[in-house]
């Protein structure tokens, strides 16, 4: 590691996998602020955000060796965080005896070409089309595309039935396609 250059995320993560505490601290300093900011946009409860951030970094510490190097470390960390948040909401849902829809997690994070285009927002038309969607449809797209959650996970996060997630996602895509055509 050259001293004249800050280590990259992947290098830090590799060091963390080796049990390096300094690297872990550096990784936290790099990623905790934006993670907390982004969590603020997913939950209004700052205690819940704290808990999710804490659990996320514990998973990072434990599973650093499992990061395979494809994609950004930030995306990997967010993938962990959003699922911790879903788990937390699930716990609350269960506590409130609303529903017990414990589904299996979607393992694959591979997004379709269409989704990738959405994430990258390459085109002005996409941006305009997106902004024309209703907040409900935007929320579903955000959960399923940007956060990479499964239908069930998105349902827990948004507090709506999985069936609704599916229909809204279909409607959102149909509308986008129509607008972009």
């Amino acid at each position: 590691m050259r001293p004249d250059r800050a280590p990259s995320d992947a290098e830090l993560l590799a060091a963390v996998a080796e049990g390096d505490s300094d690297a872990f601290g550096a990784l936290y300093d790099q990623h905790a602020p934006w993670l907390l900011v982004r969590l603020r946009r997913r939950t209004a409860d700052s205690d819940a955000a704290d808990q999710v951030a804490q659990e996320t970094f514990l998973v990072v510490w434990r599973d650093a060796g499992r990061f395979r190097g494809q994609g950004a470390v930030g995306a990997w960390i967010w993938g962990i965080a959003i699922r911790r948040l879903v788990d937390l909401q699930r716990g609350r849902v269960a506590q409130e005896r609303l529903a017990g829809l414990l589904g299996r997690r979607r393992v694959s994070d591979v997004a379709s070409a269409e989704e990738q285009a959405l994430v990258r927002l390459e085109h002005r038309e996409v941006i305009r089309a997106l902004n024309r969607l209703s907040p409900e449809l935007q929320a579903v797209l955000q959960a399923t595309v940007l956060d990479g959650l499964s239908t069930r996970e998105a349902a827990v996060l948004l507090g709506i039935p999985p069936g609704t997630v599916k229909t809204r996602a279909m409607r959102a895509r149909a509308q986008l396609r129509q607008d972009l055509a």
Binding site: E18, G19, D20, S21, D22, A23
Partner: peptide, 11 residues
């Protein structure tokens, strides 16, 4: 040794 404090002593 703060950087390696979480490593097992045998390592």
């Amino acid at each position: 040794l703060d950087a390696v404090r979480r490593k097992k002593i045998k390592a």
